[in-house]
Design a protein around this nucleic acid. Structure first.
Lengths: 245, 245
DNA sequence: CGGACAATTGAATGACCTCAAAACAAGTGG
DNA sequence: CCACTTGTTTTGAGGTCATTCAATTGTCCG
């Protein structure tokens, strides 16, 4: 069996001990395939598990009273999906596969056991979820205080940063499987305006498009424009191992 | 010495054991006063501690390249502030006292020790921070997809829900120490438009204002309008104690 | 070749913003 | 107690960016 993407991710930040790897191996179950467009979990549904993305992209979204939708996060290989629902017995968001995906399950009680027996892993998961939430704050800031070009730029930079965590090397172009409706639901714009905005970004020489493929041409300008910070590059775990006082 | 607001908060969700109380007592240090308007921590500053709010309100904000500001969260007594910075050695947000406050410190290494020795507390903190982040998602949704009246309503309902966690009984009016500039920075509007929006909400019979005091007149309508859900009322911790498989 | 989505484009409307001035509130020092 | 300062809130007028509605083009797949 291939090593879990979660193990690889954690191992990227801290060197895992064999015991820790075993604990994760034991906790993770049942790989399943999820085809593009399918919903893994529906908001409000009872749920006792988290999911580890092994392959593909997901997004987490919430539905509105008026029929609208807000996409909150994107999940990539190595992400532990569903930590937001840890405080309740039901799912607080929808999870939809953006591309064809493979996930494995990690039940909440199994996570509980990890908390009891592998505190370093627990701490690392805590820190990683903190990082993810700061990225969420960044997007909130983008939506609350920036115009359309800046919002879409933030999204693209964010995706780029996430892809680089797994890809290793430098990535400057990627397949963007989202429809413009999806992009709009993620950054708080209508699909019509997303279309105009992408066009404008091309005119300004920020990006280039070929079908679903996006190439970032002027990353530096996009970064200064948005104040983007890559929150995934580094995760500090000093506090976990510092000698006791 | 008074029992820490964090202990009270945790005790509200799970009954703490004496050992757990001791661990928290040991970990929390130095109460300090922070006058209204003062900054407890500045974005980018090196920081090795979290803070427990014992009294008063804080807000967490991030500064923008263009001089603007986005207020991300509000922190109330019993909140553990700064968990978002767990993944780095520096603060990712400003923390500003909205009213006169008292805080105590909880160093990151001490939190590390809690993770090692009190897994149930660690799990509970994880779940609580998840709940907080869902509330943040809710605000993102509000900013991304709702109009001004709905955004301000969401904010007021959110504050109300937070106050009720500590106050115990039902609260329907409270002192709102924020300026309209602050409100605008929290919900993504200009202060001018916040003024107009609050006026409109009064006209519509949603709220009533006397100076800084706000009374919610039609909570039901505000809730249906925004689809607001109180994320703080209940925290599930079943997964922490479920028997091992 | 159709059929279903997705993307683009245009025109008109509207929500929120900017700029600017005035009214109000609270504190400070004379 | 009043004049003055500083900051907040309110109100008005005009401008801008994003939305809405509607029609057209493009793309993928059966």
């Amino acid at each position: 069996m291939r090593t879990s993407a979660l193990v690889q991710r954690l191992d990227r930040y801290i060197k895992l001990t064999p015991a820790e790897r075993d604990a994760l191996d034991w906790a993770e179950r049942r790989e399943t395939k999820v085809p593009a467009g399918a919903k893994l979990l529906i908001e409000g549904e009872e749920s006792n598990t988290l999911f580890v993305v092994q392959m593909g992209w997901f997004h987490a979204a919430i539905r509105l009273a008026n029929g609208g939708r807000q996409i909150l996060r994107f999940h990539f290989p190595g992400d532990l999906m569903g930590t937001s629902s840890m405080a309740w017995a039901f799912a607080v968001h929808d999870f939809t596969a953006v591309s064809d995906c493979i996930v494995s399950e990690l039940s909440k009680p199994n996570l509980g056991r990890i908390f009891r027996e592998q505190p370093r892993l627990a701490g690392m998961l805590f820190a990683m979820s903190a990082a993810e939430n700061v990225a969420l704050s960044d997007r909130l800031t983008s939506i609350g205080r920036m115009d359309s070009v800046e919002r879409v730029s933030t999204l693209i930079l964010d995706v780029l940063a996430r892809l680089r965590v797994t890809a290793g090397g430098v990535v400057d172009s990627f397949d963007f499987p989202l429809t413009q409706t999806d992009i709009g639901d993620a950054v708080g714009l209508t699909k019509v305006h997303v279309s105009r905005t992408l066009g404008k970004m091309e005119d300004q020489g920020l990006i280039e498009r070929n079908g679903k493929r996006v190439k970032v041409l002027d990353e530096a300008r996009m970064i200064t424009m948005t104040g983007f910070i890559d929150r995934y590059h580094e995760i500090d775990s000093e506090w976990l191992i510092t000698a006791e006082v």
